[in-house]
């Protein structure tokens, strides 16, 4: 498992493809919203939170898919399956590498977004990294599973969002709510946060258990 993770990081260091494209894409999505909304609207925490997550979900989806397409170039995924590695471990490796890259991107995009929107700084913002990480974990878990399915079908660009977005609805609702409360400086560690963490756990377990069915032929 660590071997796969190490290889993914090395590949990214070599190509710098994933992080850079993810970053630019997330920024562009945010820009579109900034142009579409009035400054007053932008200052509302609810908008800020929605924006953060929309950018993360859409950029992240492409990033996750990209990772698997890279793996497909010389059919390397088959090479991976030849190795004596349990499919559950392959899942965790891919999942962790997705979490890692999304976190790296968000570490820059999130503060940038808040600055662009002109949201006031408050102490509760210190909780934002944790909330973002929780969202990324759940998203990557389902995303890794769905991308493994989508990548080996025709029209994979369409199939991935079609599968992933409806399944993500609960996570998305929870994440947007927690972030909204957080940006508004309210208490955010309530029910929604617990729900978010619970969804994370469920999604990771689902991905881990079902990945084996998806990767074997």
């Amino acid at each position: 498992m660590w071997a796969i993770l190490w290889k993914d990081l090395l590949l990214e260091l070599r190509t710098k493809e994933r992080v850079s494209s993810l970053f630019v894409l997330a920024l562009l999505i945010i820009l579109v919203f900034v142009f579409a909304l009035t400054p007053e609207q932008l200052k509302q925490p609810a908008f800020g939170s929605a924006l953060l997550w929309v950018a993360l979900v859409f950029a992240g989806m492409l990033g996750i898919q990209r990772a698997l397409i890279l793996e497909q170039e010389r059919n390397c995924f088959t090479g991976l399956l030849l190795c004596p590695i349990d499919p559950g471990q392959v899942f965790f490796a891919k999942f962790l590498s997705n979490v890692f890259f999304l976190t790296v991107v968000e570490a820059v995009v999130a503060p940038l977004t808040l600055a662009l929107l002109g949201l006031p700084f408050s102490v509760s913002l210190l909780g934002l990294p944790l909330v973002l990480l929780c969202g990324i974990v759940g998203f990557s878990a389902l995303g890794t599973l769905c991308a493994a399915i989508a990548v080996r079908t025709r029209a994979r660009e369409i199939i991935l969002p079609l599968m992933l977005l409806p399944l993500l609805v609960p996570l998305f609702i929870a994440a947007v709510h927690v972030t909204g409360a957080l940006l508004a400086g309210e208490v955010w560690t309530g029910t929604w946060f617990r729900v978010l963490v619970a969804f994370d756990v469920i999604f990771v377990v689902i991905g881990w258990l079902t990945f084996g069915f998806v990767v074997q032929e």
């Binding site: 290889k7 090395l10 590949l11 070599r14 190509t15 170039e73 010389r74 059919n75 390397c76 088959t78 090479g79 991976l80 030849l82």
Partner: peptide
């Protein structure tokens, strides 16, 4: 204990 040589190389082009 099994080694497999297929049509494709299974090598990462960027490594």
């Amino acid at each position: 204990k099994v080694g497999f040589l297929g049509h494709e190389s299974y090598l990462y082009p960027d490594l």
